[in-house]
Structures are given as structure tokens and as C-alpha cells.
């Protein structure tokens, strides 16, 4: 019955949506309605009014930074919810991962790879305003390096490297940092999450330390996402 209902819904929705899209602006159209004053300003050449070369980063950490704060919040909610659900469980899965692997090849390779990944992650986080990547991508890599460590050396040793409480505190702290940077704008007489308007230095175009608040927020997001990923895995794989 459920199957039948879902299929009927699918057929109807497909018919409607396909009929709709036959009318939509064609794919790749250079004069599509989405090309307007908004995108023109976002795509201002050079570092523009934000001091950031990566136009996507401009949007997520400056023009629409408030959405990104919301996004970081959703992540925080998701992890908090997961942590609460998983805390105090019997841990049928925890046992299998607690010890990790005994394979020396795996362990050695991991020892080499993890620092490399982390360095690259740091690069991605700190260069988000200049090149593809940024806090989210780099933070995920940083977290992934910890996940790799956890899989190979086991949850118990990983836990010694990063206690769950520490992870939670770092996560919360990084989010607070985001808010504080935003409030910095208020203190400097502009609006919440203002960057250049508040007087954060735009810096030299293309330099590492440029983009003002964007760079600071990116750093915070990187740390937060890394802590989130690590934390989530700690909870998914073990009991408290």
C-alpha cells in the first residue's frame, strides 16, 4: 500500500515537474534570468569590495554570511542531536572499532598520511578566500584525518587524542567565535557580520592575510567542522 502510494506520487510528480521544466530557461543560457545585477556585483573583478578573490567565499562569508551562520548552526544541531541520541547506549558497534587494526602496513602508512592530510587541510582552510575550498572543505579534511586515525588505531586511542568533551567544547567555542567576529562588526559601529563596512582590513589583494572578517570566520568554520566530524565519529563508534 505504502509502495503503491509512493509510486503514484512519483508518477504524478514526474509528469508535473517534467512538463514544468520543458518551459524553464534552457541549460547554460548566458542570458538566463539569474544573470542580473546581483551576480554582477558578486562577480566584480579582482578582489573587489570584499578583498576576496573566490566569489563563492565572498558570498558565503560576506554577502550572505548570516546564512552561513545558520548553516553552522544546523551542523551544530545535527551533531548535538546525534550525540544526545547516542550517549549512554549499549554499544554493539563500539566493540568492533575499539581496538582498530593490527596491520603494521596500515598503521605506518596512516602515520605518514595523517600529517600530510592535516597540512593540506590547513592550507585549504586558510586559503579559502583565494582559491577553491575554504572552511567547510578544509574542516572536513581535517576531521577526515582524525577519522582515518580512528579507523586504524581504534576508538580507544583516538579518544585519548581527542576526548569527546574537548571536541564538543571546541565545536561550541568555534561557533561562538563566529558570532564574536560578527559582533565585532557591531562594536565597530556597523551591522552584525559586517566586514569591510565595519573596518576590518581588506588587506593586499591575493595575500594570505586578506579579506578581513572573511578570513577569521573561515578559520573558525574550519576548526568547527573538523571538531564536528571528529566528534560525530567518536560518538558513532563508541559508548561514553
Amino acid at each position: 500500500m505504502r509502495q503503491l502510494g509512493a509510486t503514484a506520487l512519483l508518477v504524478v510528480a514526474a509528469a508535473v515537474l517534467f512538463a514544468t521544466l520543458a518551459e524553464a530557461p534552457p541549460f547554460g543560457w548566458q542570458e538566463a534570468p539569474t544573470r542580473n545585477v546581483i551576480t554582477d556585483r558578486y562577480l566584480a573583478p579582482g578582489a573587489g569590495e570584499t578583498g576576496v578573490l573566490n566569489a563563492v567565499t565572498r558570498i558565503i562569508f560576506d554577502y550572505r554570511s548570516y546564512d552561513t551562520l545558520g548553516e553552522a548552526t544546523v551542523l551544530f544541531v545535527g551533531v548535538a542531536a546525534a550525540v544526545v541520541v547516542l550517549s549512554g547506549r549499549t554499544g554493539r558497534f563500539a566493540v568492533r572499532l575499539a581496538g582498530g587494526s593490527d596491520d603494521p602496513v596500515l598503521q605506518t602508512v596512516t602515520r605518514v598520511v595523517v600529517p600530510l592530510v592535516q597540512v593540506f587541510a590547513a592550507y585549504v582552510i586558510t586559503h579559502g578566500h583565494l582559491s577553491p575550498g575554504g572552511g567547510f572543505a578544509g574542516g572536513t579534511m581535517l576531521g577526515a584525518s582524525f577519522v582515518l586515525y580512528l579507523f586504524v588505531f581504534g576508538a580507544d586511542r583516538a579518544r585519548r587524542k581527542l576526548r569527546p568533551e574537548t571536541g564538543e567544547m571546541v565545536e561550541g567555542g568555534a561557533a561562538v567565535w563566529y558570532v564574536l567576529v560578527g559582533l565585532g562588526g557591531v562594536l565597530m559601529g556597523a551591522s552584525f557580520l559586517a566586514n569591510a563596512a565595519a573596518g576590518f582590513p581588506r588587506g593586499v589583494e591575493g595575500a594570505l592575510l586578506s579579506g578581513g572578517a572573511v578570513w577569521l570566520i573561515g578559520l573558525g568554520i574550519g576548526v568547527k567542522v573538523a571538531a564536528t566530524v571528529a566528534n560525530l565519529f567518536l560518538h558513532l563508534t563508541g559508548e561514553d
Partner: peptide, 15 residues
């Protein structure tokens, strides 16, 4: 996406 468009990352100093 627009045909023949590039990734939206500006080059430094480009006008």
C-alpha cells in the same frame, strides 16, 4: 552554469 563560463574565482589584479 552558463555556456563557456569559468569557475568564479577571480585572478588578482584583474580588471
Amino acid at each position: 552554469y552558463a555556456r563557456h563560463s569559468a569557475a568564479p574565482i577571480m585572478s588578482p589584479g584583474g580588471a
